[in-house]
């Protein structure tokens, strides 16, 4: 050790830490599959933070471990250490570096947030062309009790709106999502389909208008990296583009009661033709009873009745269902 000059040593350590951090950042494998356009943006950001985090972690932990070993008190040595009380340049350095990193991360956050559509919730073209920052209640909530007459005031909408390049352009598909203890209900205003699972075509710009009937829920698809609370009395939305056909879990992420953990369903991303087939088959099925299908508000069913068809998918046993029927 003694022979290696200090600058060389620092350089070597620096290079090593950088390489390791970069490797960890891009190979940590901690994130699930990427299935939405948004997930790519989020992951790139996360990976960058993992790189920075790993580097900081290695440096700090390395220093701690080194100190603990190199500067431990030897048997019989009762003297004190060096009386160093501070070092202004050093302190300025380790205040400035984190400050710079943090500002960088802040700017990057805003960037990603904007690309994801974070600045435009509620800002969309309604079908009739005028631009209003208000969600027409009627189309928004096929399931919300009609008693809540449209407010005179513009209501804010929270969540994610059109991504940057699509600002002002209506989504390809709108789905109304309603959360209730303990299920998600998806209504397709265009076709009148009501379902317990979300079906969307791949590469389509989909907008979810999210509402809650009883308590707060949170709509989360880990593979999309998107989450938005469903809040009673507030309108929220999520807009995403699914980029990979497949079946992904929809998870409720906000504590909503005893069976919060069982409030799960699926989002099925179809190829466009498959999606058309699905729509056709659903409409055909529902044809004779469309009115009825819409009239039976799932909220009128007991939870047990409502959940029974999905029991298998969401892995919850009959006993648990029986619990629900209190």
């Amino acid at each position: 050790m003694k022979q290696i000059p200090a600058p060389l040593l620092t350089l070597t350590i620096g290079v090593a830490v950088t390489l390791v951090s970069l490797w960890v950042g891009f190979n940590h494998g901690l994130l699930p599959e990427q299935a939405s356009a948004q997930s790519v943006l989020v992951d790139d950001f996360f990976d960058v933070m993992v790189v920075i985090g790993t580097a900081l972690f290695l440096v700090v932990e390395g220093a701690i471990v080194y100190c603990t070993i190199a500067f431990r008190r030897r048997e019989g040595d009762d003297t004190d250490g060096l009386p160093i009380e501070g070092n202004l340049p050093l302190e300025a350095f380790w205040t400035a570096i984190p400050a710079i990193i943090v500002i960088g991360l802040g700017i990057y956050s805003v960037q990603v947030f904007q690309d994801m559509g974070g600045f435009t919730p509620g800002d969309r073209m309604p079908d009739h062309g005028t631009m209003i920052a208000q969600s027409p209640d009627a189309s928004l909530s096929g399931l919300v009790p009609a008693g809540a007459e449209p407010e005179l005031l513009a209501k804010s909408v929270y969540g994610f709106g059109a991504p940057l390049e699509k600002e002002g352009i209506a989504a390809d598909l709108e789905v109304n999502v309603s959360g209730m203890q303990y299920a998600w209900i998806f209504t397709y205003p265009d076709s009148g389909i009501v379902d317990g699972e979300l079906h969307v075509p791949v590469n389509a710009d989909v907008q979810l208008n999210i509402s809650a009937q009883d308590v707060i829920h949170s709509f989360w698809v880990p593979q999309f990296r998107l989450k938005q609370d469903a809040i009673p009395g507030k309108d929220t939305e999520l807009r995403f583009v699914a980029i990979k056909p497949g079946t992904y879990p929809v998870v409720c992420a906000e504590l909503c009661g005893g069976y919060h953990g069982a409030m799960r369903t699926q989002v099925i991303v179809h190829s466009p033709s498959e999606y058309q087939n699905w729509v056709q088959s659903r409409i055909a099925q529902a044809e004779p009873t469309t009115a009825e299908a819409i009239a039976t508000n799932p909220a009128d069913l007991t939870d047990t009745e409502y959940l029974a068809p999905y029991a298998a998918e969401i892995d919850f046993d009959a006993q648990l269902l029986a619990h629900l029927a209190h």
């Binding site: 989020v42 950001f45 949170s218 990296r225 989450k227």
Partner: peptide, 15 residues
């Protein structure tokens, strides 16, 4: 710090 950035927190919040 990763939680502090909204885009990442959207994914990991309440997990």
């Amino acid at each position: 710090v990763t939680l502090g950035t909204a885009p990442v927190d959207i994914h990991v919040h309440d997990t």
